[in-house]
Design a protein around this nucleic acid. Structure first.
Lengths: 347, 347
DNA sequence: TGTTGGTAGTGAAACGATAAACCCGGTTAA
DNA sequence: TTAACCGGGTTTATCGTTTCACTACCAACA
């Protein structure tokens, strides 16, 4: 591998001059244009690539942002990642992603990686079930800005970006209400998830406002013990066995919506003609489902983007030794109407 | 951030000794157990994390594997990535992933990142449409082992892992044939993809062997101009308008299978009772589709794993200055039977 | 007495890059 | 008169580690 020394030797200038020129650093304007051209030319010819390790070591800036995701194969994570990437690209920061693979035991390794590489900040995509507070203290103790996406933590000096879950489910139920549905069924998420609770609150508050009665017979809940799909599938069958009839179904998320649609189809119910279904998340495959899913879009890319914006600001603040006060942002979800909902028919 | 010097100072030993102890390096057995314990203890207390930049710089080994994916939000890529991660974890190598975001203009940036970080090897997940040969020469010129997943290149000293496409489609058509289908329709992939051609060859060769006639009226092809889903949807409608009837449909990939199923459902055809459908890839959502998709599983995780195995071997070879000869592996796909296929009915 | 040999470490030179201070004859500004 | 500034760079110190060549001490051996 070519070093800067070889470029210097070949071009006949000092290492410093080469460094200044290639970095367009301060004071480069004193270097004559001829010299600059010559140096660039030599560097190009030799195929010189600056050694980023050496650079980081000396300059004490890694130009690196740590991202910790709980499962890289989960579209939730990759969409947020996309938002992060797009936001930080112009800043010269490069994301280093570590993947927990849904396995807490990998936490320590990931942490070591990020700290060992001297990331200048970190964005953690919160595992719905697990978020080690050690993570946060390891970073905040060292004054490394940290942002959590998907969860708001109390009592820790850590920024966050979350979706307004209640606003989302309000959009969902409002949509069905506007279509004339009054007999609605619900598949709630498991209680261990904050999101479940918030989403349910959105539904209840809307129902209360418009005097819509929620039939307890038509409310079932995922326990979160097995596969969500399996469980939601069985809960839908369960709903169909109950005496109360319904023309619409709101599920905790898109995966359970898919399961519900599948169960309804199996039982001979047409979606949306016999029963409308609304999900939550807008996972990528929602648009291709049979039928394409009406759902609440979380704006994951924007969440990533906001997280990156915050962490960038905090990094800048830290560099200038200004105080860092955590910031909290909430994004508003959007309703995406596709083919799994339609006006209420007769019962 | 704590440095090794501070650990040395605090513990009262020299930097050298601390380094030897913490790395369990050669010669550590000369250091007394008491000293070792003391050093570990001090390091722990101070929260010491070795600076990987400094380490790489000195030791001239980055312990880093570059991975270039064409789109990190594509499950194709993330599944392969998962395989890579799992394979290299024990080796101490850490993957640095760069994401092309389906945009060739980002190629140079990604390349600079990987070379600048002095990756010891690279795995490139081939964009179906685009693979810059510069990529390969930049690495092979520098004697950095490179593996391409998803494409086999001729005339370049680069290893590869590919799926046996023809074997896959043979499994698909065999499955339908065994179920008694004889009137089959096909949605071919675009000609620009090698995979399309290979998959089609598998179908043709099987048909020839069992004397199954392929009706040209029932063969349509994706052009690849717009969204695959849209196009496959329209092609299915087109097939339904033609005079020839069919009881089964083989599509280029899962996405087009989903589109086809959607179009069939819309047209009032039941899947699989009126028409069986087989896809290719086994994307994660295939299992949750309505109905769950019978498809050909590419074994992406294994492809990643094989790629990692190859690159690891080559890195070891390079370290020992042995010759590196490219290796080529082909993985055999598997048939996954779900609910989108059933025995042929009457026409 | 001189020579090994082992024990338990230490010192200093790298690795590749950047930051800060400096050079030196000549021109301006205060 | 003094000081600052200028072009066009150079010298030197330094970032945090690892590695190679040492050393100081002691005991054993011939």
């Amino acid at each position: 591998m070519i070093t800067i020394r070889e470029v210097a030797g070949e071009s006949g200038f000092s290492v410093t001059t080469v460094s200044m020129v290639l970095n367009n650093g301060a004071g480069v304007d004193r270097i004559s244009q001829r010299t600059r051209n010559r140096i660039w030319e030599v560097a190009r010819q030799l195929g010189y690539r600056p050694n980023l390790h050496a650079r980081s070591l000396r300059s004490n800036r890694s130009q690196t942002l740590g991202v910790m995701v709980f499962d890289l194969t989960d579209p939730y994570c990759t969409q947020i990642l996309r938002g992060i990437q797009n936001h930080i690209r112009p800043s010269g920061l490069f994301p280093i992603v570590t993947d927990l693979q849904d396995d807490r035991s990998q936490f320590q390794t990931c942490l070591d990686m990020l700290l060992g590489r001297r990331v200048e900040g970190i964005i953690s995509i919160a595992n719905p079930l697990y978020l080690d507070s050690k993570l946060l203290s390891e970073f905040s103790d060292r004054n490394i800005p940290a942002v959590v996406i998907g969860r708001e933590l109390s009592n820790v000096p850590v920024s966050s970006v979350v979706v307004d879950n209640a606003a989302g489910t309000r959009l969902a139920i409002q949509h069905l209400y506007d279509l004339g549905h009054s007999k609605m069924a619900f598949i709630k998420g498991p209680d261990i998830l904050v999101d479940s609770i918030q989403r349910w609150q959105g539904l209840e508050s809307f129902a209360a406002e418009v005097d819509l009665e929620l039939d307890p017979e038509l409310i079932v809940q995922i326990k979160g013990r097995n596969s969500t799909f399996r469980e939601a599938y069985e809960l839908t069958e369960e709903l169909l066995r109950r005496r109360s009839r319904f023309t619409a179904l709101i599920t905790f998320d898109d995966l359970s919506a898919c399961a519900a649609i599948r169960a309804l189809s199996k039982a001979g119910e047409r979606v949306p003609e016999d029963c409308s279904v609304v999900g939550f998340d807008d996972i990528p495959s929602a648009a291709f489902y049979n039928p394409p899913l009406t759902t609440i879009q979380q704006q994951l890319e924007m969440q990533g983007s906001l997280g990156a914006e915050i962490v960038e600001q905090l990094i800048r603040a830290a560099a200038e030794k200004r105080m860092l006060t955590p910031k909290h942002r909430k994004v508003f979800p959007k309703l995406v109407v596709r083919d799994s909902t339609c006006p209420a028919g007769k019962l």
